[in-house]
Write a protein that binds this DNA or RNA. Structure first.
Lengths: 231, 231
DNA sequence: TCCTGTCTCGTACTTAGTACGGCTGGTTTG
DNA sequence: CAAACCAGCCGTACTAAGTACGAGACAGGA
């Protein structure tokens, strides 16, 4: 990226002055801004300010805010590692699923949008194509490929969603919950939550994220068994 | 619910005239409105109109829109069947997971909010408590209970999220995707997606939802095996 | 009857997305 | 080389939405 100072740069191609706006520059700025201030604070005005430009200028490069979100999601998809083609399908898929989770930890605000968009970009389509190729190349039938992909992505995105909820609030979530539970404690209500929280969650060594590998391997093992059974 | 005509009713208790607004009436109206017009069309003004009242009146019963969403999520949670206490934990959890999915198919707009809220209501807390009790009652350790709950909910919500994306667009999603793929087809790009779509997804008999039971049973079997191993 | 608390509403401020049309500086063309 | 053109940028302003503030209405109790 050219050195930027509120949109005023000296470009590598020698043209001094205001950097030209492009669709990609708008999208990239949106990603950076979302990482910094959260997705709900990414407004057209804030984005324009970030780019050293007035709000309406953005509309010459993107048709509207929806398109920006679509572009942002595609950027996030592009950051996900493809399943390595030199590994067996199971290891390759494990790698790509861990990569999805890593990317979504970097961009927690993106999680709810990943599966909800109806207009996938090129990086998204490419990624899906490679994943399908990985499963098919591993010898899975079309039917089992469909099951495997649906099931793995459900798990990965669902897990990431829960993790983002924890990330956004951090401490306060746990504390807030503890408050509510304690106020109900005298009634003997929520006894299992109390036990669970005090005896496990709040103990050192507990980490929600540890369940990711556990669940992922459960699914991969199950899919592998199903693949073996269909031969 | 008392017979309502834009907020003017003859109550069962005999008081004629405008039905008093209550927090619960606001929340219930929000759920009904969301079911009808989608969550993004649930505005304070629309909700007030629905209740035969002016916008600002709502603020005497709820502190703001966030609280309405919190309440709505709690209503949705209350519709989920608890794991039946007379079944073994595995069957009980299967039942409650299928129930979650059924509820979220009824309220697809709710899916992204279920795990993202940071201020759970009483129905939400109660539900979590019962689920934890089911797993603990089945003899799972605290550590395995944590894994099991995290993993099952990740899968269930992730799956529901994908299903809502399909629900909202229905046909057009598939068609739109097909368009994009076909335009790239001449380049030989997206070959696996093309195969997958034409040879499987568009064939009669394919249903995305079928993968739900597949994945759920994979996870339940895996958890059961882990439970057996820790004895 | 009057007082007080509760509910409702009218008005208006703020933030956000974006339609419309004008300005400008670089590029093309006769 | 000048005139015409045009892409990109911006000023203005409209609409939708959340909500702060304080006044009116009405019921129940003193």
């Amino acid at each position: 990226m050219a050195a930027t100072d509120g949109g005023r740069t000296v470009d590598s191609d020698g043209t001094a002055g205001r950097t030209r706006l492009t669709r990609q520059r708008v999208i990239d700025a949106a990603v950076a801004l979302a990482d910094r201030v959260g997705i709900e604070a990414v407004t057209i005005r804030a984005l324009a300010g970030e780019l050293g430009v007035k709000p309406m200028s953005l509309y010459h490069h993107v048709p509207g805010k929806e398109a920006i979100v679509d572009g942002v999601v595609d950027v996030v998809f592009s950051e996900i590692d493809e399943p390595p083609s030199d590994l067996p399908w199971k290891d390759a898929m494990r790698h790509r699923c861990h990569s999805v989770r890593a990317v979504l930890r970097r961009h927690p605000w993106a999680t709810p949008y990943m599966e909800a968009r109806t207009t996938p970009g090129p990086a998204t389509l490419h990624h899906h194509d490679v994943v399908l190729g990985c499963l098919r190349g591993g010898g899975l039938s079309l039917a089992l490929t469909a099951h495997a992909y649906a099931v793995l992505d459900s798990f990965v995105y669902g897990f990431a969603l829960q993790e983002s909820a924890l990330t956004f609030e951090g401490e306060s979530t746990v504390v807030g919950l503890a408050d509510q539970m304690m106020s109900a404690f005298r009634d003997g209500a929520y006894e299992h939550m109390v036990e669970f929280t005090t005896q496990h969650v709040l103990r050192p060594g507990y980490a929600f994220g540890d369940s990711f590998a556990f669940g992922l391997d459960l699914l991969l093992d199950g899919i592998e068994a199903a693949a073996a059974a269909e031969r």
